[in-house]
Design a protein around this nucleic acid. Structure first.
Lengths: 194, 194
DNA sequence: GTCTATAGGACGATAGAC
DNA sequence: GTCTATCGTCCTATAGAC
């Protein structure tokens, strides 16, 4: 039997995930992680080699989670436009920003190839996967065949990532919602029914 | 006559602008600013009250510059779509990210109302100003009157801000260019000529 | 107006007892 | 596996000489 309680290592990873999202990599200190996890210094350095090692565990898990949530929307029953719409309108903690995209701004994290890799791979996968959905829509005659799936998908993902930026700047979800609404409005003009 | 050489205060501001763009606020130390400006500690603290004061001078100037560059594209001769296209295709240092939008991710900066204000105002102005251009296009019959200027403008600004994020994640300008191309492709379907 | 010296604290990490 | 003590460094800022 495995322990049924939450292990110290587990609490350290979850605390790191939260702090990475709230404060970023550079601004997150081992001390802050330990305090949130209710663990001492020695405990942290027993389970992890250091701050980068712990961050890697946290980022890997967050990336996996983000991918799973997106895939859940993309592989749902419905037309391509319905699935894209559902993905765009999915509930998000907008003011906290994207837990993966936000890391892009952290110079120390991006300088470490191991930490950078999951960020790069996750967003590349997202663009590629969404391009497949757009391509389905074009193939099925639901979307204008003149639309390029790859660039259209990149624009849609960018609207989300940029929406987070605008919302954080305004300290309001409004710009995010407006950007999504605007993107859906532009897309609506390229559907067969339009 | 004013001094013709570059003053120490001026060099400090310019160094701060560069470092804020490259590293962000939290990761930029007074020491690093001094070294880049070729000034000593005493010199910096003589001209500025501290790191936040210097950052305010730097951010204010960067915000003003960004606004002027955008306005140059928006007030140029041409149709609304031509001006929006020119704005989107303008040369940018994509891999460095948006010098204003990137600050959005810095928790220490966003916690300071004085430092946060220029970031908030600049992006709010950008959305509003672009919405005016979109509205002109709709009014002139150049763009589909069914398009909502405000949400469409928010989407376009978000594509740029998100494009920066995707490009930095990929360490390549390609996703940025794709997002812009995708946005222009979506917009093209809503023009009268389409 | 610029310099050096120094303060007081946080940082990331290690050592070694228990 | 967890603890406390400690290291050496960097941080932001101030003091005071020149």
């Amino acid at each position: 039997m495995y322990s049924m309680g939450t292990s110290t290592a587990e609490r350290l990873i979850e605390s790191t995930r939260e702090l990475l999202w709230e404060r970023g990599y550079a601004a997150t200190s081992p001390k802050a992680i330990q305090q949130r996890a209710g663990a001492g210094q020695g405990s942290m350095y027993h389970h992890f080699a250091g701050k980068p090692d712990l961050a890697l565990a946290a980022i890997t898990r967050t990336a996996q989670e983000m991918r799973a949530k997106a895939e859940a929307q993309f592989s749902t029953p419905g037309t391509a436009v319905e699935r894209i719409t559902a993905y765009l309108l999915r509930e998000r903690e907008v003011l906290k920003g994207c837990p993966i995209g936000g890391l892009t701004q952290d110079p120390d994290l991006m300088a470490d190839p191991a930490l950078r890799a999951p960020v790069e791979e996750t967003l590349a996968w997202l663009r590629g996967r969404l391009a497949e959905v757009v391509a389905e829509g074009c193939r099925d005659g639901e979307l204008d065949a003149a639309l390029d799936p790859q660039t259209t998908a990149a624009a849609i993902v960018a609207v989300l990532q940029g929406g987070y930026v605008l919302a954080r700047a305004a300290d309001s979800v409004d710009p995010f919602d407006q950007a999504v609404t605007g993107a859906l409005g532009l897309l609506a003009g390229r559907t067969t029914s339009a």
